[in-house]
Amino acid sequence: MRLTDPNTRLGRFLHWLFEISLVLKGLFAAAETLSGLALLGMPGNAVLRLAQWLTHRELTEDPHDAIAAALLNAAQHFSIETQSFYGFYFTSHGALKLVVVVLLMRGVLWAYPGAVALLTAFVVYQMYLWSLHHAISMLLLTALDLVVIALTVREWYVRHGFAIRHSSQK
Rank of each mutant, 00 (worst) to 15 (best):
Leu140Gln: 12
Leu146Gly: 09
Gly107Leu: 05
Ser131Tyr: 10
Trp130Ser: 02
Ser137Asp: 14
Leu109Pro: 03
Leu146Phe: 12
Met127His: 00
Leu144Lys: 10
Trp156Cys: 05
Ala117Phe: 13
Arg154Glu: 07
Val153Met: 14
Val148Thr: 12
Trp130Tyr: 11
Ile136Pro: 05
Leu151Asp: 02
Trp130Met: 02
Tyr125Pro: 02
Gly114Ala: 12
Thr152Lys: 05
Leu132Glu: 02
Met105Asn: 06
Gly114Lys: 08
Ile136Phe: 15
Ala143Phe: 14
Leu141Ile: 09
Ala111Cys: 01
Leu109Gly: 05
Ala121Val: 06
Met127Ile: 00
Leu118Gly: 10
Pro113Thr: 00
Leu129Ala: 13
Glu155Gly: 08
Leu144Arg: 09
Val116Cys: 04
Val148Gly: 04
Arg106Lys: 14
Met138Ala: 09
Trp130Phe: 13
Thr142Met: 14
Val153Gln: 04
Trp130Lys: 02
Val108Ala: 09
Tyr125Gln: 08
Leu140Phe: 12
Leu103Tyr: 06
Arg159Asp: 07
Ala111Thr: 00
Leu140Tyr: 12
Ala150Leu: 10
Trp156Glu: 03
Tyr125Phe: 14
Ala121His: 06
Leu119Ser: 06
Ala135Ser: 15
Leu109Glu: 03
His134Leu: 11
Trp110Ile: 14
Met105Thr: 07
Gly107Asp: 03
Tyr128Ala: 08
Ala117Lys: 11
Tyr125His: 13
Pro113Val: 00
Leu141Glu: 10
Ile136Asn: 05
Leu144His: 12
His133Lys: 15
His134Ala: 11
Trp130Ala: 01
Gly107Lys: 03
Leu103Asp: 04
Gly114Tyr: 10
Trp110Arg: 13
Gly114Cys: 07
Gln126Leu: 04
Arg159His: 03
Val124Trp: 10
Leu144Ile: 14
Met127Phe: 12
Tyr112Arg: 02
Ala150Thr: 07
Val123Phe: 06
Val116Arg: 05
Leu118Ala: 12
Gln126Met: 05
Val123Ile: 10
His133Val: 15
Ser131Gln: 12
His134Gly: 01
Leu109His: 06
Met105Pro: 08
Gly107Arg: 05
Val116Leu: 03
Arg106Glu: 01
Leu141Thr: 08
Leu140Val: 07
Val108Leu: 09
Pro113Tyr: 01
Trp130Thr: 05
Ala111Gly: 02
Ala121Ser: 03
Leu109Arg: 03
Thr142Val: 10
Leu104Phe: 04
Ala117His: 11
Leu104Met: 08
His160Met: 14
Ser137His: 13
Val147Glu: 09
His134Lys: 09
Leu146Ala: 11
Leu118Val: 11
Val153Ser: 09
Val123Asp: 01
Leu118His: 11
Tyr112Phe: 13
Leu146Trp: 10
Ala121Met: 00
Val147Ala: 15
Trp130His: 08
Arg154Ile: 10
Gly114Ser: 09
Tyr128His: 15
Val148Arg: 06
His160Asp: 07
Leu146Lys: 12
Ser131Lys: 13
Met138Cys: 01
Ala117Cys: 11
Arg154His: 05
Leu144Pro: 12
Tyr157Val: 03
His160Gly: 13
His134Cys: 09
Leu109Trp: 01
Tyr157Met: 11
His133Arg: 15
Pro113Asn: 00
Leu139Glu: 02
Val124Leu: 13
Leu109Asp: 03
Leu132Arg: 06
Ile149Ser: 03
Arg106Asn: 09
Leu132Gly: 00
Val124Pro: 01
Arg154Pro: 00
Leu118Met: 11
Tyr128Met: 06
Ala115Cys: 10
Val124Tyr: 08
